[in-house]
Design a protein around this nucleic acid. Structure first.
Length: 934
DNA sequence: GCAAGGTC
């Protein structure tokens, strides 16, 4: 027997459909999800007996999200979210449903999709198809389209199975992707920036952007601005009243309404009172009805509950969903306001006849036969909201909402209220006035629907042709009044009208803008923009981007419709929209100060931050390099105290990889230059400014370099360990691993660099653990190798030779260009001089710039530097004394005779360095008698 | 910590 898997959008629908198709004889069994049962029954399809399994999902089975590399807020520049890869995955709480589908699909040959017949339903259908065909690729797939869940509609649907509509599903994919990309990018940008700019007010505030929430905010702001900008305008009108002693009082209004010209009105008024005799021209009587309410859809439920019950939309929907799951009312998310023909209204009304408040009214409806007043909307899936079961056991707002649904339903099924309207037209000296009255003949639906008021007004009896002198003829002044702020019902109407959100989400968007403090409520429950909401809208408006206007969403909706109809390609629409929004985003970032300025009107002066800080805050700074541990991007950041920099992994705190830059880095800025050598890339070069005198002479104080590993001198200057070292190089040799001096190769035996990859080269480091705060940065190559190669110029010192060894620790190689000379930083040949002054260095030779003092560079090099001391305890930081910032000391490196290097981490005090010269940083003399003062 | 859309 052929097995067919049927999948509906929710368990409730599966149950109903199975009931209808099986004639109430389906068997229920459990799936992996306790909420989504499996209903089985036999059915004759395609002229053969089939076993049907009907199960369900719970709305969307798959969710749209970024890859891990873009999921964290600081993991990337938000602009990259416009292009970052997006995946559809099954969230954890739906895994059980997916497992059920997979298991059932394996045993079935045919899949019939019974999801709701709207756009989202089609897309959910394709999610089901994706999951099922993944385990059963050769499954035949059909779509059942039904206008309502009634026996006739379901029978027609299964007799006319169709292919699923990819176009419609594509439109939803486009919508999902755009919502995610645009929402996430703008939200991150706004939040991260404004939290920094207004830390006192917004430090913990999420400042979201969404394609529905922003236009919703826009409606509130728009109305508020209308109210603010409103200027009352005076007008004048003539009012006539008459008192017919025993027969009552009557008031006539002027047919001209009101005039905004005082003198014009005055002229007419004077004309009227010149001859104030009134003549009754006509007395008209005509029937007047007050229409009963239309069948209830979600939007009306939300609006009416808000207006009549004073329960806000969010709360109403929450209650309605609870009543639905308890079986008291039908599905509350519906756009349909037409009762299906084959829905048995009589039965539903019958259930209510015993209620003490409205039971009698329900009985009367049954006598006359239910006659529902339908609207003109249908979502082709759910009927209007109506009671499905009687209860009198509810309390509080649940009771009020249930009662409203019942009364609305009964009112809708009964009759319009009937009355008679009387109009009396009079003239006074050629000006015309009229009065109207109402007599209610049959209240009908009003008896069960206290939410509508219709009050009669009895006019005194007047005869045509009769004449009388009115008791008063007045010229009154009035003035126009501002529109009122929006009520929740007004707001929902506007959202509905402009296609912002769906019936199921209006209430959520309103709640969102309340929760984000974009709007608030006045005492009489009217919406008023908050400072944040107002500032954001004004900020974007100032840029010329009307982000809060509904047309953006409307344009997208139009495109989505064209995708559904196959008139536009999904990829074209997607690319077009992404491009458009990305351009806006980039421009918004450029002009972000306009948002600051707008908000400053409300929050006071913004925090003064540098561009670098702001870029950093918004994760928009260019990243430095991929993390060697986890592969996520590392970016340049400022330390907490704003003194100094570090390069941190965006995977923090999961990944704690960090490169601390020394204190003598005064400024650092990532450039857009990408290093052509370093891998994995991209590795962006960093523009540094070093403290004067703190770095070796071959590194200028302003220097742009790569920290990816290709620039050995920079790596050493910054004391950066290579990323590969962590994997390939012993981070800290134990004493047993340390080579004894005797074991170390003699210089002549030492391998050339090409034979000894840097990553394999042993070095000494402080033996304290990484977590020990007193651990120092000591670093020393174990072989203390002499220079063997000359490096090509990439930093402007073509005539200088220096180590190509990573971490190479000596500058004693600055021996000139091979001709016995020494060149200084400015390219001049260094001048060999001798220390003349009395002191420890008296008689010692050194090279200096030959230019006159004040014009030359700061180059200084001992002439005998190659003969560096070998028994000197290396100061912290290797070749130059980093811990005593500002001191570059040529030739202070060497291992101790015993082959052990020792960091000074614990011996600083004992080895406290003698006072250094403020000019050359050498010991043994002061700046005053420095040999450089030649 | 982001959106909007389903749904429980």
């Amino acid at each position: 027997m052929v097995r067919i898997l049927n999948v509906a959008e929710k368990n409730d629908a599966a149950k109903t459909l199975a009931g209808l198709m099986s004639g109430g004889r389906s068997r229920k069994r459990e799936g992996f999800s306790k909420f989504n049962k499996i209903y089985e029954f036999d059915y004759n399809l395609f002229n053969q007996n089939c076993t049907m399994s009907m199960t369900s999902v719970s709305g969307h089975l798959l969710g749209c999200e970024f890859e891990a590399s873009h999921r964290k807020w600081h993991s990337c520049n938000p602009v990259s979210l416009f292009d970052a890869p997006i995946h559809k995955t099954c969230p954890e709480n739906y895994k059980d449903i997916k497992r059920t589908l997979e298991r059932e699909a394996r045993g079935c040959e045919i899949l019939v999709v019974w999801t709701d017949c709207d756009r989202e339903g089609e897309n959910i259908g394709f999610e089901v198809i994706q999951v099922c065909t993944a385990v059963k690729p050769n499954m035949r797939v059909y779509r059942a389209r039904f206008s309502e869940m009634t026996p006739g509609a379901v029978t027609r649907a299964i007799a006319n199975l169709q292919p699923p509509d990819k176009n419609v599903s594509d439109a939803v994919d486009v919508r999902q992707e755009l919502d995610l990309r645009i929402g996430a990018s703008f939200t991150r940008f706004q939040t991260m920036r404004l939290q920094k700019v207004f830390p006192n007010v917004l430090a913990d505030q999420l400042i979201s952007y969404g394609s529905c929430q922003f236009p919703t905010l826009g409606f509130v702001v728009e109305r508020y601005k209308q109210v603010q900008a409103f200027i009352p305008e005076p007008f004048w009108k003539i009012k006539v009243s008459h008192d017919l002693q025993d027969d009552g009082f009557i008031e006539f209004s002027w047919r001209r309404g009101r005039l905004f010209d005082y003198e014009a009105c005055l002229v007419l008024y004077e004309h009227v009172i010149e001859n104030p005799l009134a003549t009754v021209l006509e007395v008209k009587k005509k029937p007047k009805s007050k229409w009963r309410p239309v069948a209830l859809d979600t939007v009306e439920l939300e609006k009416l509950a808000s207006r009549k019950l004073r329960i806000n939309a969010k709360e109403t929907m929450k209650i309605a969903e609870k009543l639905y799951t308890q079986g008291f009312i039908s599905y509350p998310r519906t756009e349909t306001n037409i009762f299906p023909k084959d829905l048995n209204l009589r039965n539903l009304i019958q259930q209510q006849v015993n209620d003490q408040d409205w039971g009698e009214f329900a009985g009367h409806i049954l006598e006359d036969g239910p006659n529902p007043r339908n609207g003109n909307k249908t979502d082709q899936a759910h009927p209007p909201i109506h009671p499905t079961k009687y209860t009198n056991g509810l309390q509080g707002n649940e009771k009020r909402v249930y009662e409203f649904v019942v009364r609305h339903f009964l009112a809708c099924c009964s009759k319009d209220a009937q009355g008679q309207e009387t109009t009396v037209d009079i003239s006074i000296n050629d000006e015309y006035f009229s009065a109207s009255g109402l007599m209610i003949i049959a209240r009908n639906y009003l008896d069960v629907y206290p939410y509508d008021k219709w009050t009669g007004k009895i006019l005194p009896t007047m005869e045509e042709g009769a004449q009388f002198t009115p008791r008063t003829i007045e010229m009154n002044q009035g003035e126009t009044s501002a529109p009122s702020l929006l009520t929740e019902a007004d707001l929902i109407s506007l959202m509905d009208k402009h296609g912002i959100g769906t019936d199921a989400t209006h209430a959520e968007h309103i709640e969102t803008i309340k929760a984000r403090l974009y709007v608030g409520l006045t005492n009489d429950q009217k919406f008023i923009p908050g400072e944040l909401g107002m500032g954001l809208v004004e900020g974007y408006d100032a840029m010329g981007f009307h982000m809060s206007k509904p047309h953006l969403r409307a344009e997208l909706e139009n495109d989505l419709k064209l995708i559904c109809e196959g008139k536009k390609n999904r990829d074209v629409v997607l690319a077009d929209q992404i491009r458009k929004y990305k351009e806006v985003f980039v421009e918004a970032c450029t002009q972000a100060e306009k948002i600051d300025t707008a908000l400053a009107e409300h929050f006071g002066a913004p925090q003064q931050l540098s561009n670098q800080d702001l870029l950093q805050a918004t994760a928009m700074a260019i990243t430095v390099k991929p993390c060697s541990k986890c592969g996520m991007q590392m970016s340049l950041r400022t330390k907490k105290d704003n003194k100094g920099f570090f390069i941190g992994c965006s995977g923090y705190p999961t990944c704690r990889e960090v490169i601390w830059l020394p204190d003598y880095v005064l400024k650092a800025e990532v450039t857009e230059e990408v290093c052509p050598h370093c891998q994995p890339g991209p590795v962006n070069r960093i523009r540094f400014q070093f403290k004067r005198g703190s770095v070796p002479p071959f590194i200028p104080n302003d220097y742009t370099g790569c920290i990816g590993g290709c620039d050995n001198n920079l790596m050493e200057t910054l004391q950066i360990r290579r990323s590969s070292q962590s994997a390939a190089q012993p981070s800290q040799p134990t004493s047993s691993q340390r080579p004894a001096a005797s074991q170390r190769p003699a210089p002549s035996q030492r391998p050339a660099l090409s034979q000894a990859p840097p990553s394999r080269r042993p070095f000494y480091a402080c033996s304290k653990s990484q977590d020990d705060s007193s651990k120092c940065n000591f670093f020393l190559w174990a072989d203390n190798q002499e220079p063997t190669t000359q490096r090509s110029n990439d930093s402007g010192f073509s005539t200088l030779k220096y180590y190509n060894n990573p971490g190479g620790n000596r500058t004693s190689a600055i021996t000139g260009a091979g001709d016995g000379s020494v060149s200084c930083q400015c390219g001049q040949e260094g001048k060999l001089l001798t220390v003349q002054k009395v002191g420890p260095n008296q008689g010692r030779q050194f090279y200096a710039c030959p230019k006159p003092r004040g014009q030359g560079c700061n180059f200084f090099q001992w002439g005998d530097d190659a003969a560096a001391p070998t028994n000197y305890t290396a100061p912290r930081g290797g070749g130059y004394n980093a811990s005593q910032r500002g001191g570059y000391q040529p030739g202070l490196i060497g291992g101790r005779g015993g082959g052990h290097a020792q960091s000074n981490g614990s011996t600083t005090t004992a080895q406290r360095a003698p006072r250094k010269c403020g000019q050359c940083r050498q010991t043994g003399h002061t700046k005053k008698n420095c040999p450089m003062n030649r």
